[in-house]
Design a protein around this nucleic acid. Structure first.
Length: 250
DNA sequence: CGGGTTTGACCCGCGC
DNA sequence: GCGCGGGTCAAACCCG
């Protein structure tokens, strides 16, 4: 990805951090990040809010919020608050990791869409890839090329709540017990009309204290819990859109 | 009453 | 072809 695109990506990923600072993002590991270079439809997003009212989420920074980042280190709630005005790259630099290709969960304005680089390999021993079955089949059938790309990203968070408040509204449409795992897998779909983003949530079979969340697709709308706010430049006195915050924060 | 959840049934791809 | 497993559907139910 070119620097301009990276900068644009960084710019659009700062907001979710702001948006989520009222929550308590638990330890989060991005297990994989695979992006289809040319998405079939312009998508975009930011953060999301689970529709599961029964489980108020304590987390609001899934891949959408983390933007183009492979978060492998511990980000404690208070640390996040302190750093809420830093860009995604501030986090990335802390962990000495390079940003992966475009992250499905992030909102991307159609005009901001740019060809993504091949998916980054997460240098994390705990990294687990969750390629889309169809993409996997295609990759395996395609002349031995190993590139597997899809609008899917999986990451895990250490949290008591399985429902992560990422700013979007989700509707549960299925639950399935998975072989070799004592924990059921829950299926969610973005409640926004016309948005086909899905996510799967299940507890890590090896460590139940972790929740593995897999996003598939990219939101074609902004987060319902996100609003733009304007800031005034001290020098010029002009107003400009400075980012996104949740109204409750002020 | 509308929207979300639950849960059994169904569909489909894959391996044998 | 058959069985298995993952993903989705949809009717019933729940809740504010």
């Amino acid at each position: 990805m070119c620097m301009a695109a990276a900068a644009a990506a960084a710019a659009r990923t700062v907001a979710p951090f702001d948006n989520c600072c009222r929550h308590h993002p638990p330890h989060a590991d991005v297990l994989s990040s695979m992006a289809r270079p040319h998405a079939t439809a312009p998508h975009g997003g930011g953060a999301s809010r689970s529709s599961s009212a029964t489980a108020p989420s304590s987390f609001a920074a899934p891949p959408a919020a983390f933007g183009e980042g492979v978060i492998t280190g511990d980000v404690l709630p208070h640390q996040l608050r302190q750093q809420q005005h830093l860009s995604i790259f501030d986090y990335l630099s802390d962990d000495q990791v390079r940003p992966p290709a475009a992250v499905p969960g992030a909102f991307v304005a159609p005009s901001a869409m740019a060809p993504a680089e091949p998916p980054a390999v997460v240098p994390d021993a705990a990294a687990v890839c969750y390629p889309h079955p169809r993409s996997m089949a295609t990759a395996m059938a395609g002349e031995g090329r190993a590139s597997i790309t899809t609008d899917r990203i999986a990451f895990r968070t250490r949290s008591d709540d399985e429902i992560l408040d990422d700013g979007y509204k989700w509707r549960k449409y299925g639950k399935k017990s998975v072989k070799n795992s004592p924990n059921p897998r829950n299926y969610y779909r973005c409640s926004t009309e016309g948005c086909n983003v899905k996510k799967r949530v299940e507890r890590d079979k090896n460590d139940p204290s972790y929740v593995v969340t897999t996003y598939e697709g990219i939101h074609n709308h902004v987060s319902p819990g996100t609003v733009y706010y304007a800031a005034q430049d001290a020098a010029s006195g002009r107003f400009f859109v400075a980012g996104m915050h949740h109204p409750e924060l002020y």
